[in-house]
């Protein structure tokens, strides 16, 4: 019976298809100021990355996103990296970010309120939003090369945005 339920859940999960609007959220940045998602959308593609200081793949991934941000920030591309470090490790976030010189927005989700809204149970977890705030791509985990897919998607979003502008 348990096996049957397992099989049924897997089949339904594999065959359903959906795209949803990114839930709005309000979080503190490293300077203690509140930042809201809706102030970031509507300007271009937005990448939201859930990460933590103790997570090695997250750190690898953020290094790649740092490069991506340098390449495309002039075109309207933006990144929000949401740290899911809880009260045990949140003290390490700001020093870590400063030593790594990340120049995109870092937000603190200490009790995983926003992570829950995005169904993030594990990190790293990446979401790519189009200009309208729709989630057009999401990815759990990081393997070298995953950033190439993200780069391709960002380029596609930027091209379609510039096509609309020229029309």
């Amino acid at each position: 019976m348990k096996l049957l339920i397992t099989v049924l859940i897997i089949i339904v999960s594999l065959n359903i298809n959906a795209q949803r609007k990114a839930p709005n959220f309000k979080l503190e940045n490293l300077d203690g100021k509140f930042v809201e998602l809706k102030n970031f959308t509507g300007k271009g593609p937005l990448l939201i990355s859930f990460w933590a200081t103790w997570c090695k793949p997250c750190v690898e991934e953020l290094e790649e996103y740092k490069k991506l941000y340098s390449d495309y920030k002039g075109n309207g591309f933006n990144i929000i990296a949401i740290s899911t470090d809880d009260e045990k490790t949140v003290a390490k976030v700001k020093p870590f970010v400063k030593s790594k010189d990340y120049n995109f927005t870092i937000l603190l989700d200490t009790n995983s309120e926003v992570a829950r809204k995005y169904y993030v149970q594990n990190v790293p977890y990446t979401f790519l939003l189009d200009e309208k705030g729709n989630i057009v791509y999401s990815h759990l985990g990081y393997k070298k090369g995953d950033e190439l897919q993200v780069k391709k998607k960002v380029e596609t979003l930027l091209t379609s945005a510039s096509d609309k502008t020229s029309d």
Binding site: V12, N15, I16, N17, A18, Q19, R20, K21, P23, Y119
Partner: peptide, 9 residues
């Protein structure tokens, strides 16, 4: 399966 309605997650 159909796409999920807007607002549903």
């Amino acid at each position: 399966f159909p796409q999920l309605p807007d607002g549903l997650g």
